[in-house]
Structures are given as structure tokens and as C-alpha cells.
Design a protein around this nucleic acid. Structure first.
Lengths: 105, 105
DNA sequence: CATCAACCGGAATATTTGTGCCGTTATATC
DNA sequence: GATATAACGGCACAAATATTCCGGTTGATG
């Protein structure tokens, strides 16, 4: 809940700190981690400092830290609810907003 | 385990698909989601298509979808193990690799 | 089956991030 | 303490992403 009150760059910093702790717990230094991830040391430093990164950099680092399972929680894979499956043959591909009403007629 | 075999851009696509499903389950369209996140619709489309995004864009969208809790699983906050706390006053800030040996002497 | 809006992707430009290199800081060990 | 080196931050340039605008496609609904 407390996370919801943080600004985007504060969230980035928080994420960076946690990734750094994760790396340290794996007993890896920035050099070998960056090398394993296929990115530059500077990109890793920027990520850990919350200074801005790409999603690709983030995923590469997670993979290098053997922590890709975190993805499942970020956005869980579909659970095929057997009950819903009978009533909705195809899940909605798009959202429908209520039609605009004629103001006065 | 199966995630570990995917290439970075495949991971990005997978993440994008899941985020899109998450948005649809919230019954939100791209326009209002992007607006709520403070980004352009195109940036959201690129994210959902796994076409490359920044960490900031990702975090903004997660926040707009009320799914910041996913961060905890991505990189969990420190659990202050009371036992370790006694023996390690300060957690290591850096990793130490074995010292270079003198080849022959 | 016609309609309307949600969704999509391309192009041009602005902004941000990555890379490589550097000197500096600081921390774990001797 | 002295030392080795992991970690840090700045800068210039290359590369990637964001924004804006656009026309086209498609799926949910009347």
C-alpha cells in the first residue's frame, strides 16, 4: 500500500536498491553481472541507482541474477478458470466504453 | 524454469502480453490507462507489444493498473533476520573477489 | 451487417538511455 | 593504517525510446 504513494522515480530508486541487494546476496560484482547480462557496467549502475533504464536492461539483469520468476508476480500468467471458459469462448480483446448519449433530444 | 530459456525480447513480449491482459481484466482502455499513467498511448502500445520501453514507463503503467505489489516479488524488500543482525552489524556494500595470486614465486 | 471506437503501426522529431572512457571515492582485506 | 579494487559519477557520442500525428484495421455492439 505504501508503494502507491511513491513517485515514479522514487519507485525506480527503490527497485534499484532491491536489485543491488539481490546481486550482493548472490555474491556477484557489477562487472561479472553486467558481463553475464550482456550489458555495460554503466547501464547496470544506472539501473541500481534508479537513474533510468530500459525494460530490456532490467530483464537481462533479472535473468543474470536467476530471478526471472519475479516476472510471474509482476504480471501473472493466465489462469484458465474452467467455469468462465464455458460462458466466454474467447476472452475480450478490447475494452468497450459505454456509448455516448445524445445530450438532449 | 521455462522462462530462463527465453531470449530478452521474447521475455519483453511475454511481459507485454501479460500487462495487456491485466489491463483488460481491469476493464481499462489504452487511452485512459495511458492518461492515468502520464504517458502517451504509443508508449503503452510499445510496452504491450514488447517493442521496447523504459523502466519508468513500466512502473507508471503498473501504478496505473494498481499492481505495484508486483514489485515486491520482483525484488523483495529486505527481511531483517534478527539472528543475522547480531553477527553482521552492517550488510556488505560490495562484493569481494579472491585476490590475484602471484603466478610463480 | 453496419457502425463506431479501440487498437494498431509508420514516420519525423525530441528526449532518454547505452556505451566507452576516465578519474575519484570508499570499503573489504592485509 | 596501507593497499587493492569494487563501486561511483561525469562527459561525449551512438543508439533506443517517447511523443505526436496520421491513416488503416478490427472487434464489440446496435
Amino acid at each position: 500500500m505504501t508503494l502507491a504513494f511513491l513517485a515514479p522515480n522514487e519507485l525506480q530508486e527503490l527497485l534499484g536498491e532491491r536489485l543491488k541487494r539481490l546481486r550482493l546476496s548472490r555474491n556477484l560484482d557489477q562487472r561479472t553481472t553486467a558481463e553475464k547480462a550482456g550489458i555495460s557496467e554503466k547501464a547496470l549502475r544506472n539501473l541500481e541507482a534508479g537513474r533510468g533504464s530500459t525494460v530490456e536492461t532490467l530483464l537481462r539483469v533479472l535473468k543474470a541474477l536467476d530471478h526471472l520468476q519475479g516476472l510471474d508476480m509482476l504480471a501473472p500468467e493466465v489462469s484458465v478458470n474452467p467455469l468462465e471458459l464455458l460462458r466466454q469462448p474467447k476472452p475480450p480483446q478490447r475494452v468497450r466504453r459505454p456509448r455516448k448519449q445524445n445530450p438532449a433530444s
